[in-house]
Simulated assay, not measured.
Amino acid sequence: MFDYTYQIISISFVVIREMEVCMKYRTAAVAGSFYPATADQIDQELSVFLNAPSESTTQAKALIVPHAGYCYSGAVAGYAYSYLKNIAHNINRVILLGPSHRVALQGCAISSCDFFTTPIGPIPVDKSAYTQLLDEKLVTINDQAHLLEHSLEVQLPFLQRSLQNFVLVPIVVGQCSVQHVSQILEILKVNEPGTLVVVSSDLSHYHPYQEAQLLDNRTIQHILNYEDHLSGQGACGCYAVNGLLSYAKKQHWPIKLLKKANSGDTFGSKKEVVGYASFILY
């Protein structure tokens, strides 16, 4: 007698395997350079960075964090991510915005991938959010913009170790208006519970130490004042930061500077430094 049960099980395995093959993964591009190459090494570093004190009553709605190599800016970023430890169970979606370093980009770009991976593992992408943004013509699909982009990738291990189960909406932000980014946040209803916005941005680049401190302090004050006209000279993620500040001002989100430093304070020369700062909006 023909074993239909065996046939059904066999077909099911084939279907599942084909579905897995059809899934697209954006693989880690800067593991081993910007941050450690293995999950154990990542955990070892992040255990230090994520051990900063935090205010348990602060319910983060958004973070602004730097994106250099962990040896340079990891402590500044980690200080902000430490604020998630007491609310991790409430966050199930992360809107991640960062600048394009390798592709000349107009507007905002999403990826066709279903998962973004790090040595820790894969993170599922919220495809329904992508559909909303595509329907509104606020983004385009551009895998090249995501392929080697580190500004988003370096945030992923922090998110994986700070949160529990979450889906990701990774967006590379090129040249665009304040209103464009603000509209993305409005369409995605980031003010509703369960969503965290993370904007990835460093501050000034390659100035002498004391000059950089003056420039960065000025940029920090602009951010604290919700001034949405930052330029790339003050913050490399200026377009995303400007859009977030515009949106946050309308929503009456308070903003607080958490930590600041530059590469001369951490691991680099003081002749040409890169500035870093982290903020929480709540």
Rank of each mutant, 00 (worst) to 15 (best):
Q160T: 04
S269I: 10
T140G: 00
L105I: 05
Q160E: 13
K271D: 06
F13M: 07
T27M: 12
H146Y: 08
L50C: 04
L196N: 03
S162Y: 06
H229L: 11
V103Q: 09
I110N: 07
M19D: 00
N92Q: 11
S200G: 05
V190L: 01
Q44W: 03
I141Q: 10
V30H: 15
C236L: 05
S12M: 11
K270C: 04
S47L: 02
A28W: 13
T266N: 05
L281W: 06
A80F: 06
G69P: 05
Q44V: 03
S263C: 11
L134A: 10
D40Q: 09
V273F: 04
L84H: 05
N165Y: 13
L163Y: 06
Q160C: 05
V181E: 09
R17D: 00
P122C: 01
L159H: 04
T27D: 10
Q155A: 14
R218V: 02
H207L: 15
V76K: 05
E136L: 01
T219P: 01
F116A: 00
E211Y: 13
S82V: 03
D216F: 08
T118F: 03
S56W: 12
Q132D: 11
R102N: 07
I64L: 14
Q179I: 09
G121C: 03
E153R: 15
N225H: 13
E192G: 02
Q7T: 12
N191P: 00
D43T: 05
A129L: 06
S263F: 12
D228N: 15
P36M: 06
G268K: 15
A277N: 07
M19I: 03
L188T: 04
Y79P: 00
L134Q: 14
P254C: 04
S82P: 03
G32R: 11
S177K: 05
V94P: 01
A109G: 08
K259E: 08
S162W: 07
Q175D: 13
V178P: 02
Q132E: 12
A62D: 00
G264W: 12
A31Y: 09
Q213D: 08
Q41H: 12
Q183R: 15
K189T: 06
I110W: 07
N217Y: 04
S231L: 11
L244D: 04
E153G: 13
N225V: 02
A31E: 06
N142H: 05
S10R: 15
L215R: 14
A39D: 11
Y70S: 09
I171K: 07
G69V: 08
D135H: 14
F49L: 08
C22I: 06
Y25V: 15
H229S: 15
V199P: 02
Q221N: 14
I8Y: 12
S10V: 07
L245I: 04
T38N: 09
E192F: 01
E136H: 10
R102Y: 12
S33K: 15
Q155K: 15
Q179D: 13
A212W: 12
N51S: 14
Y130L: 10
F2D: 13
L244M: 03
Y209R: 08
G121D: 00
C113Q: 09
L230H: 06
H101M: 02
S112Q: 07
G237C: 04
Q221I: 05
N225E: 14
Q106F: 03
T131G: 08
I42L: 07
L148W: 14
Q164V: 11
E55W: 10
D216N: 07
I91G: 06
